[in-house]
Amino acid sequence: MNPSNERIRSLHHEYLAALRKERRVIRVWQVALLIAFFAVWEAASHFRWVDPLLFSSPSAIGKLFIEKIGDYSLLTHTWATLFETMLGFIIGTVGGALIGALLWWFPRLAKTLDPYLVVFNAMPKVALGPILIVALGPGFTSIIAMGVVIAIIITTIVVYASFQEVDPNYLKVLRTFGATRYQCFKEAVLPASFPAIISTLKVNVGLAWVGVITGEFLVSKQGLGYLIIYGFQVFNFTLVLMSLLIVAVLSTLMYQLVAMIEKKWSNRR
């Protein structure tokens, strides 16, 4: 009994060690890929394999980054974009969930609005940009509205669909107790749909960024989207690529934050 036990324990130990080793190998490769990418880029630019005017170089971007941090202009632009994205994300998600709830509450309303939702969902929302700017003025309001418009329709559709997919037997349990429609919603429909709502959060992070960057392209006042379009127009691709890198880092961070919230929520189950 004992020796075999010990053998199993040592085998388990080996298995865990192998898992850890695999994880380490993957991590090393990931970092190596990142370093290689920037190294090849730098070398390509330095030896003129590519045109440095168009593709810049990591060192030039780094220099520009430090310079722009120094005169605070980058911080202002980054903050503007981040603020608009977060607001667009929150309004889009909460608004979509509220409209989804409204549709669940009034089935006739849902049936009536169905074709309009299909049209809005199919339409490329960025095409609304000019109208939004005319209606809301060329400022951050219309940029936030862009983020909201892109996120809100798909949230409405996903949330409403998940409300409808709730197992009717949970509602049956509640109805045998004589539950009101509000009680059914609060006790069964909403909590059962929480995973779906959380998963729309992840999608909406990406959508809000699309909306806000496009909005800044059009409004062209400030923000990372503005820096990208401005850099393009004055042929400063170092500025374009630096802004792109910042957008990549920030959107990833925001996505990870939402993923953490999701994990926390699903652990509570």
């Binding site: 949970y170 009101t180 909590p191």
Partner: peptide, 23 residues
Amino acid sequence: AGSDLSTRGAVGYMLQQDYLFPW
């Protein structure tokens, strides 16, 4: 609307599965 109090709690119903709310 489910607000008729007279039948509330008069009958208890058990389904084929437990349908305990997992959350």
